[in-house]
Computed example of a mutant assay.
Amino acid sequence: MAKGNPNSKINGPLKVGTSFDWKTHGLTIRSTFHTVENKSKVGWSGPAFGSFAIHNWQFIKLGNKTVVKVEESMEG
């Protein structure tokens, strides 16, 4: 979440179990971090639009670049 972004707010330190609120299409969604690995992985989950979503991002360093691998699943 970008610092100063009015559409997102983290509710504590960046660690497993911390929630954050974010807005999309006029709706506020609360998600919770389930994975936080410094500089390599972050993942969160929570209800959204009548379903349950899981997001996982992995940051892969390739030389002087970083590739972001994104996985998402939803049910409901």
Rank of each mutant, 00 (worst) to 15 (best):
A2P: 09
K3L: 15
K3H: 10
K3C: 10
N5H: 07
N5V: 01
N5M: 03
P6Q: 09
N7C: 05
S8N: 12
S8Y: 06
S8H: 09
K9R: 15
K9S: 11
K9D: 03
G12W: 04
P13H: 02
L14I: 13
K15L: 06
S19A: 10
F20H: 13
W22E: 10
T24Y: 13
H25Y: 02
G26T: 02
G26P: 09
R30M: 07
T32M: 10
F33P: 01
H34Y: 14
V36W: 03
V36G: 14
V36Y: 00
E37G: 01
N38Y: 10
N38W: 09
K39T: 00
K39F: 15
S40K: 15
K41P: 05
G43K: 01
W44Y: 15
S45L: 06
G46Q: 00
P47T: 04
A48G: 00
A48C: 07
F49E: 12
G50P: 05
G50Y: 07
F52R: 01
F52V: 04
F52W: 05
A53M: 13
I54T: 12
H55D: 11
N56M: 11
N56I: 00
W57M: 13
Q58A: 14
F59P: 07
F59V: 08
I60W: 06
I60H: 11
N64E: 14
K65L: 12
K69I: 08
K69T: 03
V70T: 14
E71L: 11
E71D: 12
E72C: 10
S73K: 07
M74S: 13
M74L: 13
E75G: 14
